[in-house]
């Protein structure tokens, strides 16, 4: 016996679905199976109007185990993580958290990470912050540093080597 999605010839990825549901449980989120497709999430999705993200469809595809389809799609990277879907779901499902899981899967699977995520990651790995302290220009075109403003030195990891060692270990692990 088998189930096939005839548009893609894809089959339900039962194991992967279980992995995602396990992850959701670990993070204390409801699993997707309880969704009854009221689409309240999509009605209020901040990313839907601009970028056509359909959270209820993400949940439906996960329910059916059609996961690769999503992991391979750019659509999962359109979420603004406004958390309205999670906040208002009548079945306590959190499409936003499912999207985090799918994006994590895409990264772990070696998919191209879009935009500046790679440089943000690299910055955090090397100095512990998403960027180093900037000189900022005021309205009257004066450039100021933290020092100029009398702000204390930036708080960052004191022993970068140790910090990096810790991060590198995790970077290859999953929730």
């Amino acid at each position: 016996m088998s189930i096939t999605d005839l548009t893609s010839m894809g089959e339900p990825q039962v194991e992967l679905k279980k992995e995602i549901n396990d992850r959701l449980s670990k993070l204390q989120d409801e699993v997707s199976d309880y969704c009854y497709q009221c689409a309240k999430c999509t009605s209020g999705c901040e990313a839907h109007k601009l970028l056509e993200l359909e959270p209820h469809k993400i949940v439906a595809l996960l329910k059916q185990g059609l996961i690769d389809e999503m992991v391979n799609s750019d659509i999962i990277w359109t979420c603004m993580s406004c958390f309205k879907c999670r906040e208002r779901c009548p079945q306590k499902i959190a499409p936003v958290e499912i999207l985090f899981a799918l994006k994590n899967l895409a990264v772990a699977g070696g998919k191209q990470v879009p935009g500046k995520y790679t440089s943000v990651l690299q910055s955090v790995l090397s100095i512990g912050l998403i960027q180093d302290a900037q000189s900022v220009t005021t309205k009257d075109m004066k450039t100021k540093t933290r020092d100029d403003l009398g702000l204390p030195p930036l708080s960052k990891p004191d022993d970068p080597a140790k910090f990096q060692a810790g991060l590198m270990k995790i970077a290859v692990e999953k929730v």
Binding site: C38, A39, K40, T42, S43, G44, C45, K84, R88, P90
Partner: peptide
């Protein structure tokens, strides 16, 4: 009876 039926739930 000319009712507009929308199958879904508004968010707000």
């Amino acid at each position: 009876m000319k009712t507009n039926m929308f199958r879904g739930r508004p968010s707000e």
